[in-house]
Amino acid sequence: MKTDAIVKTLNASQVKEMLLYVGEKVKESKPFLTKVDSEIGDGDHGIGMALGFSKAEENLKKQEFHTINDVFKTTGMSMVQSMGGASGVIFGTMFLGGVKKLEVKEKLDVTTLAGIFEKSLVAIKERGKANLGDKTMIDALEPAVNGLKESATTSDSLIEALKSAEVNAANGVENTKDYVAKFGRSKSLGERAIGHQDAGATSVWIIFRSMREWVGNHE
């Protein structure tokens, strides 16, 4: 599908394929996410994420896409409109927030990728009022966004940026084990939540890992 060794840009239909792949991987992780969430939450995170990505798959497959904006918007809206719960709005915003008011893009490069998720991060923080250290998906998303941004300043390789996001997100997930929860149902556990990773942060890591895998498979 490409000629150079390093993928620098993806067009809209490639981004669609990448997000479809992410969805498959998230759905495969449903039992794992359910287990992670059951330890300190109410155990429905994997069910919700699988539902959201199934809806996204259905809507993405329905049409051809010409802009990155529409691919992200369709993915995010599908999640918001199907999942419910806190995750629906938060993970929907992870895809919607970054393309809101974004100029029309036909290609996704590292700078655009970093810009999209940076704006998503801001939108999620505004909506959910969570910050780093609150034991939420922010603990994986914020370092992942930092990874994308740093990588974008030194290289135009998409995979390098996504690797950096994946590693940072994984570290973020590890860090959530040390935190007391400030949101959601695990909040009332207090110190009892320590030692358990956050399910939302885990999903963020799976999403970046899957994007890195997809790009890697196409190099």
């Binding site: 919700g48 999942m83 419910g84 719960g85 629906g88 709005v89």
Partner: peptide
């Protein structure tokens, strides 16, 4: 009406 123990979606 939401899913089991999950809030209803905004469009609902």
């Amino acid at each position: 009406i939401g899913n089991v123990f999950a809030a209803p979606t905004p469009n609902t």
